[in-house]
């Protein structure tokens, strides 16, 4: 891990001696999509039109609607999973592809239009300037977190992570994360490395540098969120068990 960071640092130092000052990062935007037929065109067209400097790939997670068909009709970059794997498995597919194809960083990006691509540049800049392993697009970095039940879970996670990993994350549940090459292999190949707060906390405890950048997010326009009561309880249980109980026992690089 440290070795990797050092290597990366060397690599970046070499790059920065060039006239541009900073080397261009090859970034892959990963868009996991499950039943996003109503949203996917809006999201991907925006990326193609306005942010063509980044590569993107849509991961269709065995959608039951026409997500895959629509993507093929529009000739989007589409990795089509033959069966449904869930968000973590779908995202990991993109990470694997990015890892195998020499990307410097991958971005976890929602297929429902909640994330705004205008902030990607800011996140990449933060990664390069601060030599970060993970950059989180944070809704509450500079702005205060609203109260309410919906944010209670995020608040609990925030303080739990502070307790176990030593540093608080203002917006642990943000799904907009930029992941550096230095930790890409872990995300691509390790078990229990889903794109969730517990993985961020675990890597942070093991020396990864996590940085947050203020972003705005939109409310989802179409489709439905799967955050109902049952899923929320399952999610929180899984996160808390992972962060509190297992984090210290997990073997690094295994």
């Amino acid at each position: 891990m440290l070795y990797l960071i050092c290597l990366l640092q060397l690599y970046q130092d070499n790059g920065s001696t060039k006239e541009t000052g900073e080397i261009e990062m090859k970034v892959l935007i990963i868009i996991p999509a499950y039943n996003e037929a109503e949203n996917i065109v809006r999201v991907v067209d925006d990326l193609i039109k306005n942010y063509s400097q980044y590569d993107y790939v849509v991961i269709n997670d065995g959608s039951k609607d026409d997500t895959a068909k629509i993507c093929r009709e529009h000739h989007y970059n589409l990795i089509d999973l033959p069966i449904n794997l869930g968000l973590a498995g779908a995202f990991q597919t993109g990470v694997k592809y990015g890892y195998q194809n020499g990307y410097d960083a991958v971005l976890q990006y929602d297929g429902d239009g909640q994330h705004q691509a205008v902030y990607i540049e800011k996140m990449i800049a933060a990664m390069q300037e601060q030599n970060a392993d993970i950059v989180i697009g944070s809704r509450f970095w500079e702005k205060k977190k609203p109260g309410g039940l919906r944010m209670l879970g995020a608040r609990i996670l925030k303080y739990t992570i502070k307790f176990t990993a030593g540093k608080a994350i203002a917006d642990p549940t943000s799904g907009m994360r930029l992941i550096n090459k230095s930790v890409l292999k872990d995300f691509a190949t390790q078990m229990n490395h889903g794109p969730e707060p517990d993985t961020v906390a675990y890597l942070m405890r093991n020396g990864a540098k996590v940085v947050e950048v203020q972003v705005e997010m939109k409310e989802r326009i179409a489709g439905e969120s799967y955050l109902n009561l049952k899923n929320s309880i399952l999610y929180m249980s899984r996160m808390l068990v992972s962060i509190i109980l297992f984090q210290g026992f997990r073997k690094r690089g295994k």
Partner: peptide, 16 residues
């Protein structure tokens, strides 16, 4: 489950 997941991912990437 982990093996099936890996297989699925590799098939999809290979096809792509």
């Amino acid at each position: 489950q982990e093996r099936i997941k890996n297989l699925t991912q590799n098939i999809a990437i290979y096809r792509y």
